[in-house]
Simulated assay, not measured.
Amino acid sequence: MLLRSALLLLVLSTPALAADPQDLAKSKNCFACHGLDNKIVGPAWKDVAARFNGQKGAEQLLADKIKNGSSGTWGAVPMPPNPVSDAEAAQLAKWILTRKY
Protein backbone atom coordinates (compact mmCIF):
# COMPACT_ATOMS: atom_id res chain seq x y z
CA MET A 1 0.00 0.00 0.00
CA LEU A 2 2.86 2.39 0.79
CA LEU A 3 4.46 1.68 -2.58
CA ARG A 4 1.15 2.30 -4.36
CA SER A 5 0.73 5.62 -2.54
CA ALA A 6 4.29 6.65 -3.38
CA LEU A 7 3.77 5.83 -7.06
CA LEU A 8 0.51 7.76 -7.15
CA LEU A 9 2.19 10.77 -5.57
CA LEU A 10 5.01 10.59 -8.12
CA VAL A 11 2.57 10.43 -11.03
CA LEU A 12 0.50 13.31 -9.71
CA SER A 13 3.54 15.50 -9.09
CA THR A 14 5.09 14.93 -12.53
CA PRO A 15 3.97 17.52 -15.08
CA ALA A 16 2.21 15.99 -18.06
CA LEU A 17 3.62 16.63 -21.49
CA ALA A 18 1.39 18.06 -24.16
CA ALA A 19 -0.11 15.39 -26.39
CA ASP A 20 0.84 17.48 -29.42
CA PRO A 21 4.26 19.17 -29.42
CA GLN A 22 2.94 21.90 -31.69
CA ASP A 23 0.35 22.75 -29.03
CA LEU A 24 3.16 22.88 -26.47
CA ALA A 25 5.11 25.26 -28.75
CA LYS A 26 2.01 27.45 -29.05
CA SER A 27 1.46 27.46 -25.28
CA LYS A 28 5.07 28.52 -24.69
CA ASN A 29 4.79 31.34 -27.29
CA CYS A 30 7.47 29.81 -29.53
CA PHE A 31 5.49 30.89 -32.59
CA ALA A 32 6.05 34.53 -31.67
CA CYS A 33 9.62 34.18 -32.97
CA HIS A 34 9.66 31.01 -35.09
CA GLY A 35 7.55 29.84 -38.00
CA LEU A 36 7.23 26.29 -39.24
CA ASP A 37 8.50 27.23 -42.69
CA ASN A 38 9.41 30.89 -42.37
CA LYS A 39 11.83 33.00 -40.36
CA ILE A 40 10.21 35.51 -38.03
CA VAL A 41 12.72 36.77 -35.45
CA GLY A 42 14.42 33.40 -35.18
CA PRO A 43 14.87 30.77 -37.86
CA ALA A 44 12.10 28.61 -39.28
CA TRP A 45 11.97 25.22 -37.62
CA LYS A 46 12.52 23.51 -40.97
CA ASP A 47 15.84 25.41 -41.17
CA VAL A 48 16.79 24.33 -37.64
CA ALA A 49 16.01 20.73 -38.58
CA ALA A 50 18.09 21.03 -41.75
CA ARG A 51 21.07 22.39 -39.82
CA PHE A 52 21.04 19.93 -36.93
CA ASN A 53 19.54 16.68 -38.29
CA GLY A 54 22.11 13.92 -38.32
CA GLN A 55 24.38 15.77 -35.90
CA LYS A 56 25.39 13.69 -32.90
CA GLY A 57 23.63 14.93 -29.77
CA ALA A 58 21.38 17.32 -31.74
CA GLU A 59 18.28 16.63 -29.67
CA GLN A 60 20.02 17.43 -26.37
CA LEU A 61 21.79 20.43 -27.90
CA LEU A 62 18.48 21.91 -29.06
CA ALA A 63 16.76 21.11 -25.77
CA ASP A 64 19.52 22.99 -23.95
CA LYS A 65 19.19 25.97 -26.32
CA ILE A 66 15.42 26.00 -25.84
CA LYS A 67 15.64 25.91 -22.06
CA ASN A 68 18.73 28.08 -21.47
CA GLY A 69 18.68 30.41 -24.46
CA SER A 70 21.27 30.81 -27.16
CA SER A 71 23.14 33.42 -29.15
CA GLY A 72 25.32 33.58 -32.22
CA THR A 73 24.04 30.46 -33.97
CA TRP A 74 21.62 32.29 -36.29
CA GLY A 75 22.92 35.85 -36.12
CA ALA A 76 23.08 38.69 -33.64
CA VAL A 77 19.60 38.38 -32.10
CA PRO A 78 19.80 36.11 -29.03
CA MET A 79 17.12 33.62 -28.08
CA PRO A 80 16.20 34.14 -24.42
CA PRO A 81 15.80 31.24 -21.97
CA ASN A 82 12.34 29.72 -22.06
CA PRO A 83 10.20 28.68 -19.09
CA VAL A 84 10.06 24.98 -19.95
CA SER A 85 10.86 21.85 -17.99
CA ASP A 86 13.63 19.53 -19.14
CA ALA A 87 10.98 17.13 -20.43
CA GLU A 88 9.19 19.88 -22.37
CA ALA A 89 12.46 21.11 -23.88
CA ALA A 90 13.28 17.54 -24.97
CA GLN A 91 9.80 17.11 -26.45
CA LEU A 92 10.10 20.37 -28.40
CA ALA A 93 13.61 19.54 -29.64
CA LYS A 94 12.54 16.12 -30.86
CA TRP A 95 9.56 17.65 -32.66
CA ILE A 96 11.64 20.41 -34.27
CA LEU A 97 14.04 17.81 -35.66
CA THR A 98 11.11 16.10 -37.42
CA ARG A 99 10.26 19.20 -39.45
CA LYS A 100 10.66 18.67 -43.20
CA TYR A 101 13.28 20.68 -44.98
Rank of each mutant, 00 (worst) to 15 (best):
D20R: 05
A6W: 12
N29A: 14
S13D: 06
V84R: 06
N29G: 08
S13C: 15
A93N: 07
Q55L: 12
A44V: 05
V84I: 14
N29T: 11
P21E: 11
N68F: 10
Q22Y: 10
C33W: 02
R4F: 13
K94W: 02
A18M: 09
G72M: 03
P21C: 10
K46A: 08
M79Y: 02
M79Q: 14
A44L: 05
V41L: 12
G35S: 04
P21G: 07
L3H: 03
L7M: 13
I66V: 12
Q60T: 11
Y101S: 15
V41N: 00
P21F: 07
W95G: 01
P21A: 06
L10A: 15
Q55R: 15
G57Q: 08
N38H: 10
A93Q: 02
K46W: 00
E88W: 12
A32G: 12
L3V: 14
G54D: 07
V41S: 04
S85G: 07
K100Y: 04
L61S: 07
S71P: 00
N38F: 08
L9D: 02
F31D: 06
T14D: 04
S71T: 13
Q22C: 03
K65H: 11
A58C: 10
D47E: 14
A44Y: 04
S85P: 04
K65M: 08
D86Q: 14
G35E: 05
C33L: 02
L10I: 13
G54Q: 08
H34G: 01
P43C: 04
D37F: 04
Q22A: 15
F31S: 03
P43S: 11
L10N: 00
I96G: 03
P78L: 05
L92S: 01
G42Q: 01
D47C: 01
K28V: 13
V11N: 01
A32W: 02
L24W: 05
Q91V: 03
K46V: 13
M1W: 03
A50T: 05
L17A: 10
G54H: 08
A90V: 09
F31T: 12
P78I: 04
Q91K: 12
K26L: 10
R51K: 15
Q60G: 12
A49F: 04
